[in-house]
Design a binder for these strands. Structure first.
Lengths: 342, 342
DNA sequence: TTGTAAGCGTTATCAG
DNA sequence: CTGATAACGCTTACAA
């Protein structure tokens, strides 16, 4: 029946030959171009030939000719952070449904610039960058490929953000409402916008309430579980320790929580801990983590959609969308402040 | 100084022109081919021209010509599972260092076959598939591209696995050693080799010890936190419930643990729970989760290396490597069996 | 050592 | 409606 061309993969050429049409004609019907004006009979023959031969288009060749790769770059800080994994999942879904491949780039491997170089060389149609440090972008060169930033507002490129300042504020208001006045903070030193804003929003709300910032209760640590744990260990050592601590993300908060338990504290009686992100596991630690819920998946999905829109209706002006709303989720790790504060 | 070709990206052609050499010559030095015999002076000129123009190679064009894309496909069940995220991180690192891009494919989006079709059309140089159900592979067609499977032994393709049977066995031995005789299990129904083997190893060890399998204590649920939670809820309802439960992964175990606490049990006094994977957060739940440590990152890294090896020294015979060792980690969620068992 | 010519598999632009 | 012909940007013989 079919003539499997020895060895080689079957190309449009083979299909055309078998259907008895010219190669470009075959191409026309196979890439079912909207304005493909081709006789029904011919189209039929071509399609038959294609299925008979088991024709699969070569996307690389197509990319070269069309100067479109139908691939997206996705640069993230660290896939192993559950929040980031959610973002990735959101991106992947939207991209796949639109027929785009996702090239995953983890910053633990190379820095943003290097990743961008690689991605550009691969002719990706657009790039998504999640939570990158401010400086890393300034020197970045992307030519004319669309970029969409996640949680990193930038004058040059559009982006989708979550309402990080509100997240900090909500955490502060919650703690203030519970009567806390001696409050600590644990966050990373990196220059990542979302983290800074979370901190800012937190600080501003405290200030607005007339609560003094105790600098000795402000701790910097990597945004990881162990970072949170270590920072909390240090924090528990300061004289007249705070009655509540806000951590810049849930991983840190979970580490901090654990450290408290290890130190024999009873939560939230002795100390309130509040996180940020609301990763799935936040409600599975003990006590359950009070936190600010941030829509990670949605962040990824929206960013991906925005990018696709940029790519496909290219020179359209992009209206800056408002940040995705966050909301506080009260659980067991936070409670009313101890009455007696020296 | 430089002549930035209007609009267009700069190509080898531009570089050649500027250096006053033929285009293929420029290509030769730029793709620094090992056997590129080209005069030092010429090479120099070409390189200068390249940097002056800011030349970046077009990987798509190169891929078409070389019939090699320097890209890998990575198909995973769900990036949001921390174990999987670790695997992904391992793969990404190795691939990036070797100059390969990683196309991430999540099975929550499409099934394996569909992902494979897309990947093949993109001319990827190889595919990594993690923990796929047995049937999904049988119908898969990949032509001649190398495939490496993770935790999914298969007659047709090489792979790297973790010692899943040992994992189950270790969990069983631990519980038996603690005196448990009435033991339950929570695992997914899916036909994924690693899960099956964990269960098998567990069952065999129990049988070997003469412990009867109580089928009413054998629960199927999705391999997620909520799956584990729901299964445990059901399990707590059975008459004369088991004194210990093994969960096929840590997510399920964490869900199960939580359900126990919610139900007012005191662990490990009332019930012992053991997980499998040893994700980072296992030691941050309360009580800390006893589990079997499985080297996720290493699994990903090894698989990636094996795949690269297959790609680069293609027809070399692949020696099947032995499974990656696992080890038991005793923590607070498991303890000696209650003396009195009706 | 270098340049010429051909090709990788598609798509796009034209005449016929 | 169809079929040459020419790109797309790079690699790779093979001559010069």
């Amino acid at each position: 029946m079919s003539l499997p061309p020895s060895g080689r993969r079957v190309t449009v050429h083979d299909v055309a030959a078998r259907a008895g049409v010219s190669q470009p004609t075959a191409s026309l019907v196979l890439s079912n171009h909207p304005k493909a004006r081709v006789a029904a009979a011919t189209r039929q023959r071509v399609l038959e030939a294609a299925t008979e031969l088991g024709y699969k288009p070569n996307v690389v060749a197509r990319s070269l000719a069309r100067r479109r790769s139908y691939a997206l770059g996705l640069i993230v800080p660290d896939v192993r952070n559950p929040f980031v994994a959610d973002v990735v999942a959101g991106v992947e879904r939207v991209a796949a449904q639109a027929g785009y491949a996702v090239l995953l780039c983890d910053q633990s491997t190379r820095d943003v610039r290097q990743h961008l170089d690689v991605l550009l060389a691969r002719q990706i149609d657009g790039v998504l960058i999640d939570a990158v440090g401010g400086k890393a972008l300034s020197s970045a060169t992307v030519g004319s490929v669309p970029v969409v930033l996640m949680d990193t507002p930038h004058e040059r490129w559009p982006g989708i953000s979550t309402d990080a300042a509100a997240a900090g504020r909500l955490a502060a208001e919650h703690l203030l409402h519970l009567g806390h006045r001696s409050i600590g903070f644990i966050g990373p030193a990196v220059d990542v916008h979302a983290f800074r804003q979370r901190e800012r929003g937190f600080v501003q709300a405290l200030r607005a309430a007339g609560v003094a910032i105790r600098t000795e209760c402000w701790r910097r640590a990597p945004a990881t579980v162990t970072g949170g744990r270590d920072a909390m260990r240090a924090l528990l050592g300061v004289p007249s320790r705070p009655t509540a601590v806000f951590c810049a993300n849930d991983l840190m908060a979970i580490g901090a929580l654990k450290q408290c338990l290890t130190a024999g504290l009873v939560l939230p009686r002795d100390l309130s801990v509040v996180g940020c992100d609301d990763i799935e596991l936040a409600r599975y630690v003990t006590p359950e983590l009070s936190t600010v819920s941030v829509p990670a998946r949605e962040l990824g999905a929206r960013a991906a959609r925005l990018l696709l829109q940029q790519i496909e209706q290219s020179p359209r002006r992009v209206q800056q969308s408002r940040p995705l709303p966050v909301h506080f989720v009260g659980r067991g790790s936070s409670g009313v402040a101890p009455q007696a504060v020296a």
